[in-house]
């Protein structure tokens, strides 16, 4: 039996699949968050240097990683949509952007909360902080460009091009910020992960998986809304039980 690999690249079939997958991802995300935060806040010991404050990394690290990966994935989907003209890819890119921006924001916010007790300042012009902030700007630019174009096809293609240009630029920005920082001042306190406790590693890993699952669930939910909105004139949507 031949498998049709592209079956789920059509919005009409993907809509149903996404609907079935969302509860699973959402539920497992909730469980993983509960487990990860339990290990992080109860099982993991207090850090010798940083006291209780370090526990924010269980959210911070995962959201930073997610914010960066999601940008690349978003740019990848956008490029697919631009090159192969697949509607679903562009919709996915659009659906990922707010979640990525959210994670970038959470990463900055938790970083500030951690920085105040550790560095004595809410904000330090550290290379990582600065490039994370610029990443947030890139997300906002993508969202703003997409939102300000009424024609969905042009919006998809224009923001796809922007995302690609942005992802080419990300390494340049990262290194320029890094060199800029080392030129300006000696590096501030580094988070030395010399001998990390096993429970800390576990908690970090579990919350990272939880964040991934959450991101997938939310993106799928959002892409379903986008599909409904974009394809509202089609027959298959009119025949959906929830639309009838």
């Amino acid at each position: 039996m031949a498998i049709n690999w592209f079956k789920y690249s059509a919005p009409s079939t993907f809509y149903g699949l996404a609907g079935k997958l969302i509860p699973w991802f959402a539920l497992s995300a909730a469980i993983m968050f509960a487990v990860g935060l339990y290990i992080g806040f109860v099982v993991a010991p207090m850090d010798a240097q940083q006291g209780e404050f370090y526990r924010i990394v269980f959210i911070h690290v995962a959201s930073s990683i997610l914010s960066m990966f999601l940008y690349l994935i978003m740019a990848g989907y956008a490029a697919l949509g631009l090159i192969f003209n697949t509607r679903l890819s562009s919709m996915m890119a659009t659906a990922i952007a707010p979640t990525g921006a959210l994670f970038a924001f959470i990463s900055l916010w938790t970083g500030a909360l951690w920085g105040k007790p550790m560095w004595g300042a809410w904000w330090v012009w550290d290379a990582r902080l600065t490039s994370e902030l610029i990443l947030l700007f890139l997300y906002l630019g993508f969202i703003a460009l997409h939102a300000s174009i009424d024609d969905p096809r042009r919006a998809d293609r224009a923001s796809a091009l922007l995302a690609i240009v942005g992802s080419v630029n990300v390494p340049i920005i990262y290194f320029s910020v890094k060199w800029w920082n080392t030129l300006h001042q000696g590096s501030t306190i580094k988070f030395s992960g010399t001998s990390m406790h096993v429970a800390m590693q576990q908690a970090m890993f579990v919350t990272l998986v939880a964040c991934w699952l959450y991101a997938i669930a939310v993106v799928l939910a959002r892409v379903r809304s986008i599909i409904l909105e974009r394809e509202r004139h089609t027959k298959w949507i009119a025949e959906l039980p929830e639309v009838k």
Binding site: L145, V165, I172, S176
Partner: peptide, 16 residues
């Protein structure tokens, strides 16, 4: 909107 899109991309030029 133009400034919002372009300014982050110009940061390396500013830095160097």
């Amino acid at each position: 909107l133009l400034s919002l899109l372009v300014l982050p991309l110009c940061i390396p030029v500013l830095i160097f």
